Amino acid sequence: MSGSRIYIGRLSSRAEKRDVEKFFKEYGDIREINLKNGFGFVEFKDYRDAEDAVKESNDREFFGHRIIVEIAKGERRRGRYNDRRGGDYDRRNNNAPQRTDNRIYVENIAQSVSWQDLKDFFRRAGQVTFADAHKRREGEGIVEFSSYDDVKEALHKLDGYELKGQKITLRDVCLNNLSNYY
């Protein structure tokens, strides 16, 4: 049923399926739990339980992290996995992460910020296809989106926001301007 899946971001790598189940079962019957590296999904049998879980558990502490909990966007994907550098790939086809020209350059990121933190943070603006942190130089990162509208939304909504205690600066860039980044 649409709207019955929740996304959990900033999920501790120590959290196991049984921990997530225990944390969310108070909101209703769980159909499925799918955990990845740093994030996961919980599907409830009823969309109202998912809405309650979002309302009550977003920004709550879980295994030492303040988790992001929101209704999952898009369709459930089967056979897709997340690589260690922030891009999705399909193991059946062995595709590389989806890279796009729809990029923003992120400056002044805290040393503790990982590619997953960037990906989680920028999902507020749209569909993130790739993220990396501190590769070119410490304190800098890059985030790629599926559309240029998502880039504009990120620039509008998130420039100047604080991420892990530091105010970040965003810059719209194209592939040619960052040929030295990768």
Rank of each mutant, 00 (worst) to 15 (best):
D83S: 14
I104E: 01
K17G: 09
K167P: 01
G9R: 14
R85F: 15
H65Y: 12
Q116M: 09
E107F: 03
N37I: 06
Q116F: 04
Q98R: 15
G28T: 09
D52T: 11
N94K: 11
R85D: 12
R136Y: 15
G86L: 05
D120H: 08
D150H: 12
V69H: 14
D101N: 05
Y148L: 02
N82I: 12
K73G: 08
G86Y: 03
R92N: 09
R14Q: 13
Y182R: 15
I8P: 07
E70F: 06
R136D: 14
E162C: 02
Y161R: 06
E61Y: 11
A50C: 03
E70L: 09
S12N: 00
K152G: 05
E144G: 03
R18M: 13
R137Q: 12
K119F: 12
K17H: 14
A15S: 14
T100N: 00
G79W: 05
I6R: 07
G87C: 10
D149H: 15
D49S: 15
G141I: 10
Y89W: 13
N34Q: 05
N177A: 10
S146P: 05
I142R: 04
R103F: 00
R77Q: 14
F122C: 08
N58R: 08
A131Y: 03
R92I: 06
K119P: 07
S57A: 07
A50I: 04
N58I: 07
I142Q: 04
V42A: 06
D159K: 06
G160A: 07
S4F: 06
V106H: 02
D132P: 02
E51F: 04
Q111A: 10
F41W: 07
E16C: 09
A110Y: 04
R84F: 09
R66C: 06
E32R: 15
K22R: 15
R80F: 10
G160R: 07
R78D: 15
S12V: 01
G9H: 11
D172P: 02
I30D: 06
L163W: 01
L163V: 01
A15M: 08
Q111L: 08
Y105T: 00
K36I: 14
E144C: 05
E32H: 15
A15C: 10
V106A: 02
E75W: 08
F23K: 07
S13Y: 06
N82Y: 12
V173K: 00
K45P: 12
I168T: 04
D150V: 05
S4M: 07
V106C: 02
Y148S: 05
I33L: 11
G40V: 08
D52E: 14
F24H: 05
T100C: 01
Y105Q: 02
A125T: 05
I104A: 03
R78M: 10
Y181A: 04
R85M: 13
Y182W: 12
Q127F: 12
A154V: 03
K25F: 06
R60H: 10
R91L: 11
N58P: 06
E107G: 01
A72D: 08
L35Y: 05
E144P: 02
D150A: 13
A154P: 04
F62R: 09
L11T: 12
L118Q: 11
R103T: 00
A72Q: 07
I68Y: 14
S12F: 01
T129E: 02
E162S: 04
K157G: 03
Y81R: 15
Y148K: 07
